[in-house]
Design a protein around this nucleic acid. Structure first.
Length: 647
RNA sequence: GCCAACUUAGCUCAGCUGGUAGAGCAUUUCAUUCGUAAUGAAAGGGCCGUCGGUUCGAAUCCGAUAGUUGGCUCCA
């Protein structure tokens, strides 16, 4: 007689099924429609094949496209399908790994001497569609390690053999669909027929195991969907994202340009971009003034000896512009401001009464990033950092670090930044003395201090090992560009190493000498990255306070030019950035062009306005708001700007 | 730096398998003086990224180089 098992569903209902029933069977028992959508299942909290027999009592959640587990399974299975197509097109190809991503999947393969073109991707798409249509089932098989080793030894796939080395005998599984078998822990969707739409997005080189000393494999990127409609929507969404790409907007709005003769990664800031820069600096200076910072200014270059003292040179020489040598002395362009600030700390005897000492500067730095790493404004070779260094005692540290954290929150609120992740970057004990200063206790101690501040302030964060700076742990604010690439927007770092290297000291209350702790912080990151981010964040529609042009006055015809000028004069006296559109164009054209330039306010002036001393207000993206007195409008926009309102 | 792709007027792009360049927008001029997302007409503007090769002939084919882009590595 069949043994019965109890299956607990998410709503708490417990149903009985014969032992060996599968999630798919359960779905079928509920409804056929549901069964058609089930991609995988969560069995006792683990994601499983929907077709895998369940042998004991279990909690069960059916996973569909709407669950991340279902999506991941779908894309992982798609990677196998792509591998099958690749193998049929390139016999003898060797495979590394093919995981799902946030938006799709990839597979790393060794094609030998062969290369791939875009055309080949189209052919692969066709092949995949054909294989998907065969609706082959994904068959799971548990096998002993020796058998697995034999299989791939015979196939001559050294990458899979390398993977097998790290696995224990007894839990090795193979998955086969159609003519393709892969070493894989699964799970997979029931069959290839679920994959209805395929798009291979690009080809890239990727170093084996992510190490540039290793051989470069070919990475195929793709994305698939359970329906053509979803693929179309996805592609549509990508097109939309491209519209808010900061590189496109930066050009359209006259924010910045690159020039071949100036050099890669060296942006030229146009007048409009410079306004944004200056507004950001104004905000930073006000905020820092209020928080007790003192401003300093330091040169863009320094002698080699300083970077030897700081310890930066051996770590970062490759990413600094090469030195210029004058009278036998080498000078480097600075790639960070810290050492200069440390020298200011060291310039005068310091007492505990002087601490915390907070030195701030919008510092210009140069970093020779590898050519392939450059990316619009997000990764450049000349950058302006919202930098400051806080020198404090151990006792003051937590409070200072918290204050910096508060400053971040203040800025996030002003800019309406909600989609970000705080990342606490820690050291890796195995790399002490190489990547990290060899101070094991100080590492643990400061990491704990930072963790406490984050916990107390209730800031959500993730901890990541082996991401710290060489001189201490740090908190990074991670954001994503329009096209989905991840960047550090801002950083807040602890430094317990450089103080000692620079022999920085202060006199304590007990009249002894002590080395201060240092906090490096850049809440607004660099102008380059921050403005790149803001362009995408606002889709080019800057709030009035930071918009390059705040008001455009649009006369109906040049008969009203004198009145337009009188309005302009009034606004200019109030430091409002305003211009007149004095072109001989119809009002509709003027409005269209001004809307496209994303100027927050348009003032239409004609006969009616001139005679009544009014302006007709049009808000960007919101249409006509009606006529108001000039002074009334001016007072309102001045308040909006002063409060840095985002609407 | 590595893998792959791209580079035609200020911008966005067209130019089939080689026969020495085209559109729209922008610009300038003229007409029009207009009421909430494109007034009309005319004109100017490009040694097709750069250098070299193949060819009677190259924007088009080949090579090199620069820049950009998608990834990898990296990111103080």
């Amino acid at each position: 007689m069949d043994q019965q098992i109890n299956i607990t569903l998410p709503d708490g209902a417990v149903r009985q099924y014969p032992k060996g029933t599968s999630a798919l069977d359960v779905a079928k028992s509920i409804s056929e429609g549901l069964a058609r959508k089930v991609l995988a299942a969560e069995v006792n909290g683990q994601v499983w094949d929907a077709t895998r027999p369940i042998d004991g009592d279990a909690t069960l959640k059916l996973l569909t496209w709407d669950d991340s587990g279902g999506k991941n399974t779908f894309w992982h299975s798609s990677a196998h399908l792509m591998a099958e197509a690749i193998e049929s097109m390139y016999p003898g190809v060797k495979f590394w790994v093919g995981p799902p991503l946030d938006n799709g999947f990839y597979y790393d393969v060794d094609l030998g001497d062969r290369s791939v073109s875009e055309d080949d991707l189209r052919k692969l798409e066709v092949k995949m569609a054909e294989l998907a249509k065969q609706n082959n089932t994904y068959v799971r098989k548990e096998i002993p390690k020796t058998e697995a080793v034999n299989y791939f030894a015979e196939k001559g796939d050294e990458y899979k053999l390398d993977l097998l080395q790290g696995l224990e005998d007894g839990n090795i599984t193979f998955y086969t669909q159609g003519g393709f078998t892969d070493l894989c822990r699964g799970p997979h969707i029931p069959s290839t027929g679920f994959i209805k739409a395929v798009k291979l997005t690009n080809i890239a080189g990727a170093y084996w195991k992510g190490d540039e000393r290793n051989k470069q494999l070919t990475r195929f990127y793709g994305v698939t969907f359970p329906s053509q409609k979803q693929l179309d929507e996805y592609l549509q969404m990508l097109e939309e994202a491209k519209k808010r790409d900061h590189r496109k907007l930066g050009k359209e709005l006259g924010i910045f340009v690159f020039d071949d003769d100036v050099g890669p990664g060296l942006p030229l800031w146009m007048p409009n971009g410079t306004v944004v820069i200056e507004e950001l600096e104004k905000l930073a200076k006000e905020t820092e003034q209020e928080a007790g910072y003192k401003r300093v200014v330091t040169p863009h270059i320094a002698k080699e000896s300083m970077y030897l003292t700081s310890g930066h040179l051996p770590y970062y020489q490759d990413s600094m512009y090469p030195p210029m040598e004058l009278e036998g002395v080498k000078y480097y362009l600075k790639s960070m401001n810290c050492p200069h600030h440390h020298k200011i700390f060291a310039a005068e005897p310091r007492s505990y009464k002087d601490l915390p000492l907070r030195l701030a500067e919008y510092g210009t730095c140069y970093r020779y990033e590898q050519s392939g790493e450059l990316f619009g404004l997000m990764r450049v070779r000349c950058l302006h950092m919202n930098d400051a260094h806080i020198y404090c005692t151990k006792e003051q540290f937590a409070q200072e670090f918290r204050a910096v954290n508060d400053m971040y929150q203040k800025y996030f609120k002003i800019f309406g930044i909600e989609k970000y992740v705080m990342r606490l970057s820690l050291h890796d004990p195995a790399k002490l003395g190489q990547k990290y200063i060899n101070e094991p206790e100080l590492w643990l101690e400061t990491e704990e201090m930072v963790r406490q501040v984050l916990k107390e302030s209730g800031t959500p964060y993730v901890e990541v090992p082996d991401e710290g700076a060489f001189y201490g742990p740090k908190i990074d604010v991670q954001i994503w560009s329009a096209i989905g690439r991840e960047f550090t927007l801002a950083t807040n770092q602890v430094d317990f190493a450089q103080g000692r290297r620079f022999k920085l000291e202060f006199t304590t209350q007990e009249n002894s000498a002590e080395t201060p702790l240092i906090i490096h912080r850049a809440p607004l990151g660099t102008h380059e990255r921050f403005i790149g981010f803001l362009l995408e964040h606002y889709a080019g529609k800057f709030p009035a306070w930071i918009a390059p042009l705040q008001v455009k006055i649009l006369p109906i015809s040049d008969k009203f030019m004198d009145y337009a000028k009188s309005v302009l004069d009034k606004l200019k006296k109030l430091d409002i950035r305003a211009e007149i559109d004095d072109r001989n164009e119809k009002i509709g054209k003027k409005i269209r062009d001004t809307e496209l330039m994303k100027v927050p306010y348009m003032l239409v002036v004609g006969e009616k306005e001139a005679s009544e001393g009014k302006v007709s207000i049009r808000r960007q993206g919101k249409g006509d708001l009606g006529a108001r007195g000039v002074d009334e409008f001016a007072a309102e926009i001045v308040a909006e700007i002063r409060e840095r309102r985002s609407e």
